[in-house]
Design a protein around this nucleic acid. Structure first.
Lengths: 335, 335
DNA sequence: ATCACTAATTGAAACGATTTAATTCTTGTC
DNA sequence: GACAAGAATTAAATCGTTTCAATTAGTGAT
């Protein structure tokens, strides 16, 4: 496989000049620049990134670890980040923890070994200490979709507590009182905050009660299972509304409810979270709490690059505001 | 940042021993192995992958380029590949071409510079020549979800022509005759094959006709736009069934049809492709052609690894069989 | 024609790991 | 206790690029 010295030989210059032609074109005469490029073309030379990185002591690339690439919400966040980084010629390495703490650690290790310049992460496990260590080693870190506990890293998030409140407030406004929150695990802070918000909303309302069904993961499978448990409750304890902590769960809930013959929203109203595009086109269009996914990804990427370029830059915690999108799963049919 | 020589110093051994302790534990006494690991722990040493790669002349990693990470079908394929590779301790670098030929090229270049061992790709642009070049440079290539034109690379696909035939046969069986195929661009071979299959099915049937609405991309946006065009047709030319070449498009079609007040399937029957999980829970559950996404990803990964480990291994073209999944968007309500 | 100065080019060192071949240490045997 | 054979360790070379400092070429002014 061709390397700089072959290119240099062919172009009749030294390896140093080849390198300059590629990396500092201004330091090289137009004529030799062209000769070098011709030689590269002819030999099909492709630079060896490992050698380059080793010498340069930096890697433009940025790593991102998302909770679940199968969740369109995260796919959107990733897209936002990718677009934003592409403009800066920084490749994005996309990793998927699949809501699995062990995989998350593996991915982190991998990124560290690759000496990425920075990491965007939506944590699953308890990795704050690990991230601090990583940052301390000179790799920038930005937390996505969660406010970091420590003020060590910048983060991008929506106000999940407000989001939870909006969702349940909406349900209460429609006269619902027995509300089940389905989602989990609670370690994931977004989940805890949304639940908290749900309770805030219920706090001021006579007769309102919020109960939690903690699930291990947040996918439609989990939604279906939790719904079965909910439906098994004695009549009097059955909820009249469900707040699913994301739309995948909500879709699962919807499926299982209709399988069991429960009408949405007449028997049980349903609201989700994230407002993924599929929520709008569900059997019963699902009300949801919208987060600006792409924007969040883009913002996170910008913060990360800022932190990379100036490690002493102050941390920031922009918080996006979620918005209620009401649809039939709570409003009922509008003719 | 700590490096082997620091670890070596701390453990009171030579760098070579540290390397051996890590990479050839059998060549090192138990006692020193432990000492080395303790030193690593204490110093927080993280190996520099660039240096390692440079010396070893190989990179376990594998790159994957998918058409659209926002399409749950591809997310599933990626998951299948990832799981399969994880078992072999091979990291997967996931890239997204966003159905954009230029981005695809950028990603390829990136993977080449990283000297990945192999590449899994669902091509957008006309990259076969480029891929041949890449293979010739010693990087294995496997094509996903499309049979390669040349017999240079292994590939994994479903029988898209059969899939198209199944879809349209189903529509014909239900008495539909004027069928619109919506999807594109035609350069993407899957699309062309599905269309071909549609025509095969219509060929034997009296009065059946298939017309094509070519779209630039395959997302719900495109589905909505094409549907508007379809609805603008004079009454007599309006189709009584739509075959969307993937489920995202189908969802878009469904949205636009119901916005325009057309009933599915009474006025227009609808069938999609891929059977993503969201098809089943759409406003009107959408009939679709199922492909075994995860399996395809896993199989592709296995073929790739085989090609990496033995470059002279014969190419293979396993073809999966698609299956019709009929739902209300064609069958109508079942009470 | 010479000088001063800038532009262009280059040789050699460096990045941090792994590996090969050579050396030193153990251990068991006679 | 000496020796051979195998186990454990190590010094030094190497991977392919970039960069630093030094050299050479080029340009315009006198």
């Amino acid at each position: 496989m061709a390397q700089v010295r072959d290119v240099a030989a062919r172009a009749g210059v030294s390896p140093a000049t080849v390198s300059n032609a590629l990396n500092h074109p201004d330091k090289v005469s137009e004529k030799t620049r062209l000769r070098v490029h011709r030689a590269i073309e002819e030999l099909g030379y492709v630079r060896n990134d490992a050698a380059r990185q080793l010498r340069q002591q930096q890697n433009l690339a940025v790593g991102m670890i998302v909770l679940d690439i199968g969740n369109p919400f995260f796919a959107d966040v990733a897209r936002g980040a990718e677009n934003s980084l592409a403009a800066l010629h920084r490749p994005l390495l996309l990793g998927n923890s699949s809501q699995n703490a062990e995989r998350e650690l593996t991915q982190l290790r991998l990124f560290e070994e690759q000496r990425v310049d920075g990491i965007l992460i939506t944590p699953v496990g308890d990795v704050l200490a690990r991230l601090a260590q990583i940052k301390q080693r000179g790799i920038a870190v930005v937390i996505v979709d969660r406010e970091a506990g420590a003020d060590q890293f910048s983060s991008v998030s929506t106000n999940d507590r407000l989001g939870g409140r909006l969702a349940v407030q909406h349900l209460l406004d429609l006269g619902r009182r027995r509300i089940s929150v389905i989602g989990g695990p609670q370690i994931i802070r977004q989940v805890a905050h949304r639940h908290q918000g749900a309770q805030d909303a219920a706090a001021g309302v006579e007769g309102a009660q919020v109960s939690l069904f903690d699930t291990g993961t947040m996918d439609s499978q989990a939604g279906r299972e939790a719904t079965r448990a909910v439906l098994d409750l004695p009549r009097g304890e059955r909820p009249d509304a469900v707040f699913a902590t994301n739309d995948l769960v909500a879709l699962g809930v919807l499926q299982e409810l209709s399988r069991a013959g429960a009408k949405v929203p007449e028997d049980i109203a349903l609201i989700g979270y994230d407002d993924i595009q599929f929520a709008a086109s569900a059997t019963v269009p699902i009300s949801s709490i919208r987060q600006p996914a792409q924007e969040m990804g883009a913002k996170a990427a910008r913060l990360l690059v800022a932190a990379i370029e100036d490690p002493s830059a102050p941390v920031q915690h922009p918080v996006f505001t979620p918005a209620l999108v009401a649809r039939e799963s709570t409003l009922g049919h509008r003719e």
